[in-house]
């Protein structure tokens, strides 16, 4: 699938020329003349990257980046402009972090295309740590996606067992996808998909073993996370769900609305549940692979 880029720039023919150069390089380019138009496009179309002039007829490129961070925070943003770095007013945008590329150089369009490619393939504007084997992990996750659907009843039984065993606010199984975490099964108040930079499982999948956070407000990684406040998450224990190659595709989690500790025995029990859930998913993945092979052969 080609990389989709939103390119916002008020002035023709500069915009058209750059858009054509990007299209010629194989990108799917959506042009916008104004900030409003760019924001509308973002609302209607998923894009992989945004490139924008700094000055737009009705605003500026940092305002566009700001909208992007609110809706799809992972999407990289590039200020592609002839405005000098020192002339860009970042006062109201300190935490956005965007790339900057001068548009006035001889090979600017070519550099833009290279930078888009780097940002998209390296995911180098995400607001959270990435596992070392992220590409392989996501490839493995794809195999388990379908397995998750057919394992719904099993996962529901496992989260119900967890919820009966532990006195917690929620017990759930979540998988950490490319941009967000999705919840395959949840006992307790419902969970909608959540941006990866907001989820605790993003950190749990980096751990060799169970991640325990007894009080989210006492942990620098989570203390300012408004999503956790909204979802009443004050304590967390998450055991990684490992695929057959060892990569963590998600976690089996317990959360509580008050700070709490988890005993060794409780952590061991959670580990059992996670291993069981992972094996159930893996069996379904293998079954599906065997069926596909059978059909092909």
């Amino acid at each position: 699938m080609p990389v989709t880029v939103l390119y916002a720039h008020g002035d023709d023919p500069g915009r058209t020329a750059t858009a054509k150069a990007l299209s010629d390089a194989g990108l799917d380019v959506r042009e916008a003349v104004t900030l409003d138009e760019a924001v509308e496009t973002l609302a209607a179309t998923p894009v992989d990257c945004v490139a924008t002039a700094y000055d737009l007829p009705d605003g500026n490129g940092l305002e566009l980046c700001s909208t992007l961070r609110e809706t799809t925070p992972d999407t990289p943003c590039i200020l592609f402009t002839d405005v000098a770095a020192s002339e860009i007013d970042t006062t109201a945008f300190e935490g956005l972090v965007a790339e900057y590329l001068p548009s006035g150089t001889a090979n600017a369009d070519e550099r833009l295309q290279e930078l888009i490619d780097e940002l998209v393939t390296r995911r180098s504007q995400v607001g959270y740590p990435l596992p070392d084997d992220e590409d392989a992990r996501l490839a493995a996750l794809e195999q388990y996606e379908v397995a998750g659907q057919s394992a719904q009843d099993t996962l529901d039984r496992l989260t119900e067992l967890a919820s009966r065993h532990f006195d917690v606010h929620r017990a759930f199984v979540g998988v950490v996808g490319v941009h967000e975490e999705r919840f395959l099964s949840c006992q307790g108040p419902d969970l909608d998909p959540l941006a990866r930079e907001k989820t605790m499982c993003t950190h749990a999948i980096l751990e060799p073993d169970v991640l325990v956070v007894e009080d989210t407000r006492q942990d620098a990684r989570f203390e300012h996370n408004d999503a956790l406040e909204r979802l009443d998450i004050r304590a967390y224990a998450g055991a990684p769900l490992r695929g057959s190659d060892g990569a963590a595709i998600g976690s089996f989690c317990l959360t509580d609305d008050e700070p709490r500790s988890f005993s060794e025995a409780e952590i061991a029990y959670l580990r059992l549940l996670a291993d069981e859930a992972a094996e159930q998913l893996d069996l379904r993945r293998q079954l599906r692979a065997a069926q596909t092979e059978g059909e092909d052969g």
Binding site: Q125, V126, R221
Partner: peptide
């Protein structure tokens, strides 16, 4: 940077930007 930042996400984003540039 961590001391001045209100949240960690922008710091990760900033470090990814620097290290990504260095890699490429």
């Amino acid at each position: 940077l961590l001391m001045y930042a209100e949240e960690l996400q922008p710091v990760y984003r900033f470090l990814h930007t620097i290290t990504g540039r260095v890699r490429s």
